[in-house]
């Protein structure tokens, strides 16, 4: 696996450029802030992205464990699921932008056919991760819809129900 060795070698540069590409999906004023502010409490979005993408990259190089990938995708996509400036495709597109970063970093090396073939295989792993990201994104959206639909009714209805001020319980809520 020569490609994996190359990717490991260039990991720091690739992850940094990937991070930049992810935050550049935000408007300019926002992306500058996301890159510049290092305090995790002042900048939870930038911090979550930078904490998440390195282990995601590691999984691509290593064993592609679905649970591990989901656990690192979730914090990032939880955020993008509430940032409605992104359409669903825009929310998950950052996974695919890794392809562009890798191609840029391996420009010379991909003239070697063997590496190129390995890269094609590697890119299908990125596609797979992209699909997992879509699942995670949908789960987040579904959770938002559930909260939207039930929260207010739960709060008041439950209190009224306990007080016997409304007739029947609707457990499905």
């Amino acid at each position: 696996m020569r490609l994996n060795d190359l990717l490991k070698q260039k990991k720091a540069a690739i992850v940094k450029q990937w991070f930049d590409m992810v935050v550049n999906t935000y408007p300019l004023d926002t992306s500058q802030f996301l890159k510049g502010q290092k305090d995790p409490f002042a900048n939870p979005v930038g911090n979550t992205i930078s904490q998440g993408i390195e282990p995601l990259f590691d999984e691509l190089i290593n064993k592609m464990d679905q649970n591990t990938i989901t656990s690192f995708l979730e914090p990032i996509l939880k955020i993008r699921a509430v940032q409605v400036m992104f359409s669903p495709s825009q929310a998950v597109a950052f996974i695919f932008s890794l392809k562009e970063v890798i191609r840029k970093n391996l420009k010379k090396e991909t003239s070697d056919n063997e590496i190129l073939n390995e890269l094609l295989l590697f890119e299908s792993k990125i596609d797979e991760m992209g699909l997992m990201a879509f699942d995670v994104f949908m789960k987040c959206r579904e959770k938002i819809y559930a909260i939207k639909a039930t929260d207010e009714r739960n709060r008041t209805f439950k209190a009224f129900e306990r007080a016997g001020l409304v007739a029947e319980s609707q457990d499905a809520w």
Binding site: P27, D29, Q37, P44, V45, V82, Q83, M85
Partner: peptide
């Protein structure tokens, strides 16, 4: 003040600065 607003931090929308 720009990056102190929870809506800017959370939504990423610059008009919330």
């Amino acid at each position: 003040c720009a990056d102190k607003c929870h809506f800017f931090i959370g939504t990423g929308d610059p008009k919330n600065m």
